[in-house]
Design a protein around this nucleic acid. Structure first.
Lengths: 152, 152
DNA sequence: ACTGAAAGTCGCGGCAC
DNA sequence: GTGCCGCGACTTTCAGT
């Protein structure tokens, strides 16, 4: 899909706040309310807007401890990676997970209530048969942040 | 703020799709549409719902290359970190940034069009005076993903 | 205090231009 | 692409538990 300047401004506006009304959008992008909403709808259908979601505060739902993990798996077999990814998708503690090249295989961001819950999680996912190595870093501050926080 | 089971189900539903109507929410959480919307509003005001946003496909806006960077800065002075964080917040390529403890200081996720744009970015942020070390990992796949993708 | 139902208001999604 | 209009969705009110 081809995007023009209006689309880009529209996306920018909706990315900050998807509840903005047609009128508010119109003021921001320089089109009529109707045009803005019509374009927004098109962007949804085209998959440019993947979805619209509520960002839930991890703290507010009792997840006060966030960590970034780097993970390296043993071997190169497809099924090892697939199994790991399946577990990651199921785990509500995981807010983000990237499969990467380089020194490590995966980078995860997780949010738990406390150290106990973290260790619980680590036991489940980080001490599997094919785990080669993993490193944990405690998050001091979210300078820019992830948004998907599964709740239990 | 105290959350009950209804709130949790509500958050779960809105986190997946913030455009669900009162009626749809009612069916999911087991309350009337009005009650659902009332609660949703309260959750916004209390900051449990931090914001509601559109998730834009990085690919669709021409950012086909994603990377995870680990960054270590020189020295421990406050202003060095502050300067770095200010730059990060300004940089549209950065979709997520965590300040962490441990071997490295920051973990960033960035999205660029291609290697050229990445190098451009790296020159701007990664070769500053106080940069001690940084490592880049190319993202193969987003297993679970970040959502804030600034557009230009 | 919070629910559920109904009235009131606002914003969205067609149609004409 | 803009402006109007009917309709659906949200908000507020109110009575009940």
């Amino acid at each position: 899909m081809e995007l023009d300047d209006f689309d880009r401004r529209l996306l920018d506006a909706l990315q900050q706040d998807s509840r903005r009304t047609g009128e508010q959008l119109a003021a921001l992008v320089g089109l009529s309310p109707a045009a803005c909403l019509r374009r927004a709808q098109k962007l949804r259908e085209a998959g440019v807007i993947e979805r619209e979601i509520a960002v839930v505060s991890p703290k507010a739902i009792g997840r006060r401890l966030m960590m970034v993990l780097t993970v390296t798996l043993e071997g190169e077999q497809q099924h090892v990676f697939e199994d790991f990814e399946r577990q990651v998708r199921r785990a509500p503690e995981v807010t983000a997970c990237y499969h990467v090249t380089g020194a490590t295989d995966y980078v995860l961001v997780i949010a738990t209530a406390d150290m106990e819950e973290y260790q619980d999680f680590a036991k489940r996912l980080m001490f599997g048969k094919h785990m080669k190595r993993f490193e944990a870093m405690v998050v001091i501050d979210r300078v820019k942040f992830d948004t998907t926080q599964p709740i239990d």
